[in-house]
Structures are given as structure tokens and as C-alpha cells.
Design a protein around this nucleic acid. Structure first.
Lengths: 304, 304
DNA sequence: GCTGATATATAACATTTTGTTATATAAAGT
DNA sequence: ACTTTATATAACAAAATGTTATATATCAGC
């Protein structure tokens, strides 16, 4: 026959208080209840637990040995309960995030530090890489959450698309910096730094220029908006980039102005489709989306 | 609401086997029993524990965290059970023995090593000292068991008296060594090494000599039989000592012969009077008494 | 899509554990 | 001796845990 937790509780409480009656009070039950738990426990362990000594109950030497081990049991149970609470409150766990390199260095760290500040038990793996790899990792469930762009959907992923405002960035000392809004026509004679020709965003940009009959004076093709920002901040050319990236470089050698027409850049947050989502991941995504609010293209907001 | 051990068992078994049905088999109960335990557990912890994934049940990331802690709980329970068994089988615990110096060096170590060999978890404190101190320590319950002699009883101690045979010891090359039995008369011209004049044993010895009208040729008074043995083994005098001590020195420069009349020396095993005796102590005393059998004065054996 | 096999959940009820109150017993203080 | 206090026991109520029977969902193969 195996002993029960309740018996251990009664045993410990009685040993610590030196009396069955006190133990009953401490456990919030009646005295006979404890009395019987102790009797049952003594039966299952096979030797006497207490000796009566002028009023007080003293544990036998055997019982004293058991007591230290019993408290170890309760300690581990308390640890388990603490962990359960932390997991429920989402203050414990591990988060694996894959993202575009641009995010890993600028916006994401800010969001993460605040997120982790409130979750002392949470740890994070942050892996910056190319969009194709990010998708692979999400599908393979190596990561809980992916942040990418120009993403067209995949059946094994749950996606949230967020249209981010775009901005025209110019070197600080550029004459156009005087204008409040930069239109396509303003850029007729500028050398343009732009993203890859096969990217959806570049296609949209081309379309704008075409519509106004303005030739796009292509100068440098970059893979990432951050690269464009760096180039412009060095004083070379102009570019139309995500407002998110532009904000990171504001005041570091470039100025950012609204772009006309009101283009948007699709940011995608991916997660693997699995039955039960780690609650922590949903929590993080919520926080992250929240952090993007200042940059969201309001008129195109399509997602709840 | 608190979770129960049973719920933890069901949780662990299900996670490890990947199926409720398997878990039920492992726990030796019906499948619906496990089903409900899991449901209850999920309710109390407050989040999902498993996700169904093409046939097999996989623990959620939260559940995976809990699992390591859960096994820690069961580990501590197993430790407790092991300890309980060891205590019950008397293979764990601590034994505090106070004894006369003579025992600490000769007979007792032999008994103890055998005793401890069979009890891997048992540790011993062995403290040799004077009889008065031994009694104090037993009364004060600093020690579980005392081995002394010339003891006349004390209300706070439980005592076992054992009459030990005595022997006459002589230097190896002594003429009397030729005899099989040494009688009082044989010692008329010998220099006698004997115990303290105020000891009960010395009184008994004097009585023997008086009865036969033989003068006791007192030469050296020693506190302990072992001291007498050492002196005799160096070739000086003769002595009547406990057969126990004589046996330790046999073949080390002295010979031991039965003494006539058939004197006995009272050995006492003391333990504090407390409600419940550590079972290990009773065990040890039994072993110790057993080890004394070859030296017990049969005709005076009074104790069960 | 249908069908049988398999796994899990639910319902209804039996058993065991744990609680209760009432009361007997034993020890301690006056 | 008498009261107080602590503990044990008995009889029974509530809760936890088990059972069997059965409904429901999922998957493999047709």
C-alpha cells in the first residue's frame, strides 16, 4: 500500500506543531481527520511515528529521518505549482523567433526587452535570416514565430499581414527635405535606391512611377530597407522604404517624409499551424503587433 | 484548487506514452479513469496540456515544462519510499553508542563492522568514556546505547545485565600456565594485578581469596581489564579478568585459564527509557548480546 | 464519401478516501 | 477527586477515484 499526499501533510503538520489538534487547525480540518490520517500513515510505513512524552508528541528517530525527505517532496510540489502559475500567467517559457535581419537589430530588441521585463522566467531565441529560410523554419516548427515580408501565404502557416506605411527618405541636406510631402514627380531627377526588382514592393513602386509617367531613375538595388537607409544617410540618393526602417534612422543623417501616393509595405507574422499554440507566442505576437501600430497603414488595415 | 498526485501520474503516463489508452494500461486502471483525471488536471492548471497531432498526443510547450518538474516530484516520492523501506528494514539511521574504553578498541569494532555491513545506510557514533559519563549521557539521551560494568541501575534507564565469565591470565612462560584450571590457592605467591579496590568486582574477588584463606598479594591496581591484560602480556604478574578481555589478548604474550571459583563479571547494556525505541537500537543490542554468548557465565544467566 | 477499427470522451453508478459530528478514553493540572 | 485538554473511535456524509456501457471523433482502406 502506498502513502498519500494527505497523509504526508498530516505527518508533517503534526511533527512541526507537536500536537494532533494543532496540526488539524493548521490543515483546516477536524482533529479526528488528522488522527486517522496519522494512524493510516503509521500503518503503511510500518513503524511508530511519534512517542508521547509528557504532553507533547515527539517524532521517533525514524520519523525524524523521514521528515526531511517529506519536506523535499513538498518543496518539489511547490516548485511545480510556481511553474504552473508562471506558465499560466505567461511569465515562464521559451520563445523562438525568426526574423528579417533588419528587425533583429532595430525594432525587435526594443519590443523584446519590454516584453521580457514583465516575464522574468521567459527566454528567447532570436534568429535573423532570409525570408525563405524563415518560412522553412516555421513550417518545420523549429521556430514559434517568424517576421518577414513579401509573403504570399503557405498552408502550414498561420499568417497575420500588416500593411506598414512607407516613407521617402533623403539625405539631411537634400533640397527636397524642405518639402512636407514627397510626390513621385519630385523624384524625377533623383537617383533612386530601391529593393530587388523581383520583389512585390518594387513592382508596386514601379507601378506608381509608371502611372505618373515618371521614369524611375534606378541607381542601387538593395536587399534590405536598412541598407537603403544606410546609403541615404551617407548622403547618396533617395529611397522609398518602410516607415518602420525609416524611423530607426531618423536623425542619423537622413530625413523621412510621407510619400505620395500612399504606398504600403506588407509585413507578415508567421506561426506554424499546430493544434495548441503556446500561449506565450500568442502573447508575444499581440505585443509585437501593438508595437507596430504607429507605422500601420490605416486605410489598408484589413485584419482584426 | 490543488492538483492531486493521481492527476500528476496520469499526466506523466500520458505524456510518456503518447496516448491515454496506453497510460491507462500502464497505471493499471481503465481508460475513462485516466481521461477524467487528465480533464480535471487541465482544469486546475488552467491551460491545455496536449494537442492532438495526427493520431498521437503531444504535450504542449507549457506541458513540457511541467513534465520535468513533475518527474522531480515523483523522484522525491521515490526517495521517501526508499528511505521508509530502509528505516523499516533497519538499514538506515544513526546509532550513538557510549562504551567503556576497553570495548571501543577490541570487541565492539568487530561486532559493528558486521552489523554495518548489512546496513549500508546506517552510521554510528562510538564514544568511549568512564562509566559515570556513560550513565549521564544515556540519561540525557545524548546516546542510544551504553555499554558499561559495575552498574547498579537507574530509574531513567532500561538495563540488560549480562554475567560474563572470568579467566585467570598469566604470562606465556609462567609455570602455572601448565595447569588447565587456576584455583585461588595457586595464586598464593603471585603478584596480582587487579581492578580498583572500590569496584564490586574487586570485592567479589577479595571474598574468594578470603574464603580460601589465601592472602591477595596486591601488586598493581588498574582501572581497566585491558590494562591488566597488557601488563600480564609483558610478563608481569597475574590477573583475573573478564573472559572478553582475556580473549582479545590470547596469543599476544599471555595465556588465559578458567578460574576457580567460577566468578562472574557483570556487564550492563543501558538505554534511555523513552516511549518508542529506535528499532535500529533494539536491533543492535540484540546483535551485541548475541556476540557475547561465548563469554556468558551460563550458570548465572538470569535474563531472557 | 463510406466503413470498420481505434482512441477518447461522457454518463451512470460502485468503491475508497477523506471529511464530518458525537462520544469515549487517557493524561495533566488544580 | 475533578476539571481540562488531547487524542482515539464510531457512525455516517461528501468527495475523489474507480468501474462498465456507450457516444463521438479520427484514421486507413475501399
Amino acid at each position: 500500500m502506498k502513502f498519500s499526499l494527505r497523509q504526508l501533510e498530516a505527518f508533517q503538520a503534526t511533527a512541526n506543531s507537536g500536537s494532533v489538534t494543532q496540526a488539524a487547525k493548521r490543515l483546516g480540518v477536524s482533529q479526528p481527520a488528522v488522527s486517522r490520517l496519522l494512524a493510516d500513515f503509521a500503518n503503511t510505513v510500518g513503524f511508530e511515528l511519534f512517542e508521547r512524552e509528557s504532553g507533547t508528541l515527539t517524532p521517533t528517530s525514524e520519523a525524524r529521518y523521514m521528515l526531511t525527505e517529506v519536506s523535499r517532496v513538498f518543496e518539489s510540489l511547490n516548485h511545480l505549482e510556481d511553474l504552473r502559475r508562471d506558465l499560466k500567467e505567461r511569465t515562464a517559457g521559451h520563445l523562438r523567433i525568426a526574423c528579417l535581419p533588419g528587425f533583429a537589430t532595430s525594432h525587435l530588441p526594443k519590443v523584446l526587452t519590454e516584453f521580457l521585463d514583465q516575464r522574468p522566467g521567459v527566454t528567447v531565441t532570436l534568429e535573423p535570416d532570409r525570408p525563405e529560410r524563415i518560412l522553412e523554419w516555421i513550417i518545420g516548427q523549429q521556430y514559434d514565430c517568424g517576421i518577414t515580408d513579401g509573403f504570399s501565404g503557405h498552408p502550414a502557416t498561420e499568417t497575420i499581414d500588416i500593411p506598414i506605411k512607407t516613407a521617402c527618405i533623403l539625405p539631411e541636406d537634400h533640397p527636397l527635405a524642405a518639402k512636407d510631402v514627397i510626390a513621385v514627380q519630385d523624384l524625377r531627377d533623383e537617383k533612386i535606391i530601391h529593393s530587388r526588382r523581383d520583389s512585390p514592393f518594387h513592382a508596386a513602386l514601379m507601378h506608381c512611377f509608371d502611372q505618373k509617367g515618371v521614369p524611375l531613375n534606378s541607381w542601387i538595388e538593395v536587399r534590405q530597407f536598412t541598407a537603403a537607409c544606410t546609403l541615404v544617410s551617407q548622403g547618396y540618393g533617395a529611397s522609398i522604404v518602410s516607415a518602420l526602417d525609416a524611423a530607426q534612422f531618423e536623425g542619423r543623417g537622413l530625413v523621412s517624409r510621407p510619400f505620395e501616393p500612399d504606398l504600403s509595405h506588407e509585413l507578415s507574422i508567421l506561426r506554424p499551424i499546430t493544434g495548441a499554440q503556446p500561449l506565450l507566442v500568442l502573447d508575444f505576437i499581440e505585443t509585437f503587433v501593438e508595437s507596430l501600430q504607429p507605422f500601420v497603414h490605416e486605410s489598408q488595415k484589413a485584419i482584426a
